[in-house]
Each structure stands twice: as C-alpha cells, then as structure tokens.
C-alpha cells in the first residue's frame, strides 16, 4: 500500500454539517482512513493552530476548507490552509459561495448585532461582546476573494456519495469527473410543459406526487441547480432550494438564472408574481448570495463605506 496522503481539515464559520457528511461515508471510512494521514482537524483530534502553522509550506497534499471566513481567525486559517496545502478544496456551499451565513449580507453588521446581541429575545440588556474574540468583517466575502481555490465541492452538505467519489479520485491521483447536469436530470417527475398560473407556498394544496413540482406552482429551482445530489429532495416530494449552487461553470449567477427560468414558466402579471413570490432574495439566492451579481454589489458598497 502506498504511503498515506497528508490531509488537513479547516473549518471557518459554519455548522460542521459538511464534515459530518464526510464521516457519513460510514463503512467506506475503513477504506479511506488508512489511505490518509490527518495532519490537522481540530474537530476530531487535539490539533492546535500552531501545529498547522509549524508545517512546511505545501507539505500537505489536500486541504478541505468548510464554511465561510468572516472572523479574523477564519480568514487567517483560510490563508494558512492555502499556504500549507497543495490542493485546496472549497468543501460545501458555504465555502464555495458563502452559503446560508452569506444571507447575513441582506443586513449590515449593526443590524446583525441588534438581532444577535443587543435585542436578542433570550437576554436582557444585551451588549456586543468585545473581549477575547476575533474581529468580524462587515460583510461576508466569498472564500475565493481571499485565496485561490483549486476544487469546488458544493452542497449543503455535499452528499457522502459525492465525497467518496471525490476523495477516491484524489487519492488515486485521478481528476474528479463530475457530471454537469442540473437536478431536473435526476428528477423522476413528469413534465407537461404547462405554464404556472399561480405560485403556491409549500403548505398550500396537495402536490401531485408524479408531476413536476414547478409546473404545479411550487417554486423549485432544480433546473438551475447543479444536480450532484442526484435529485434527493425532488424525488422525495420536496422542492429543490438550490443548495448545490449553479451548474458548471459555477461562476454563473444562480438566482438570476432561476428568475429567468421562472419568468418564462410563469407568464403572469408582474405585480402578481411579485406578490406571490415571497422573499425573492432568500428564495433564489439562498446559498450563493455573496457570489451573485447582486451580492457583489452589496460587498462593493460595504467596501466603499470602509474607505
């Protein structure tokens, strides 16, 4: 057996779901673990940051970075991972596009403090803590604004199957060959090419289990979302919320593509569609607002404020 490959797992601001999904490759871990040498993974072993800092540059072959980088500590870790790793993988949608934490960019930092600390429903006389904490950036920027990313593995989280496919390929030195299709490709539901007359919320009506959810009026962004999930949600009766982001080239504006798609599927009066589609930003850019055109403008506005 070849020597184990040195790997490192770094975590920015995130929920740990992606690494959970990595652990969820389950019995296949028996195959993967002997092939890797974990050089850094704070969440599962007692590594300290200085361990990572002490390694030679590029001495780690593969680095997985989960989450986005909003605190000074996150940003430091992200840059450090880039220095130490030959291949840096943006692991999960937060790491690729900003993800759910990127939704914070709908509000400015002071509004975020109000909700989180000052007017938090569970405390009285809340204050913004300032001691022994890393500084926080005024806006969520995509990780790719700080460092060059070699491989994007999106998903909220990436599925165990996808992780296993990608990791196996990496360990054997093969390119990761992922199909470019969107979720619709994997969806078993029937399309009848009928336009939408009314937009429905998930709690309204009872959906036909065999027909396209979008054609029934439920907003499903499967057609604009990379189908690396292999259509898990849509085939189980839930609409696609777009957690894998846009299909390759993933620099596309996922939300804009979804809106263009809906515009042609729902030939409704503009006022009606505005009324019926609640929370368009959160609906169409739920996982990738910071990398979208609109989100970019938001970031630039914050940057202008700082100058």
């Amino acid at each position: 057996m070849a020597d184990p490959v040195p790997v490192a797992m770094g975590q920015g601001s995130s929920c740990w779901g992606c690494f959970q999904s990595l652990v969820d490759i389950h019995l296949r871990l028996a195959e993967v673990l002997p092939a890797i040498e974990i050089k850094y993974w704070q969440a599962v072993a007692d590594f300290k940051l200085h361990h990572l800092e002490s390694y030679e540059d590029k001495s780690i072959v593969v680095g997985f970075f989960e989450g986005m980088a909003r605190t000074e500590e996150d940003i430091h870790l992200l840059k450090l991972m880039r220095e130490k790793c030959q291949i840096l993988i943006a692991f999960g949608s937060c790491s690729c596009f900003g993800g759910i934490p990127g939704l914070a960019n709908f509000s400015d930092i002071e509004e975020c403090y109000d909700v989180k600390f000052r007017n938090n429903k569970t405390v009285e006389g809340g204050e913004v803590p300032s001691e022994n904490l890393p500084g926080i950036a005024s806006v969520v920027k995509p990780n790719s604004d700080f460092v060059d990313i070699d491989i994007y593995l999106p998903g909220c989280p990436p599925t165990p199957d996808l992780i296993y496919t990608a990791v196996s390929a990496l360990l054997s030195g093969q390119p990761i060959d992922l199909p470019p299709h969107t979720v619709c490709h994997y969806c078993d539901r029937e399309k009848k090419d009928t336009p939408i007359e009314e937009v429905l919320r998930p709690y309204q009506g009872i959906a036909d289990p065999d027909r396209c959810l979008l054609e029934q009026g439920y907003i499903c962004v499967g057609s604009s979302t990379w189908g690396l999930c292999e259509g898990q949600c849509v085939n189980m009766g839930s609409t696609c919320r777009g957690c894998f982001g846009p299909p390759p080239p993933i620099t596309q504006d996922h939300g804009a593509a979804s809106i263009s798609m809906l515009g042609s599927y729902a030939p409704m009066e503009p006022e009606k569609i505005v009324e019926e589609v609640k929370d368009p930003l959160g609906t169409f850019w739920r996982f990738d607002y910071p990398t979208s055109h609109l989100g970019r403008m938001r970031i630039k506005r914050e940057e202008a404020k700082e100058k």
Binding site: T182, D193, T194, S223, Y265
Partner: peptide, 13 residues
Amino acid sequence: PELCSSCHTCISA
C-alpha cells in the same frame, strides 16, 4: 446536449 438536464424550460419559453 451534454449540459442539458431536460428541465423543459426552453420548451415553455
């Protein structure tokens, strides 16, 4: 064809 995922959006459009 390699990029088409059969979502039928274009047919409606």
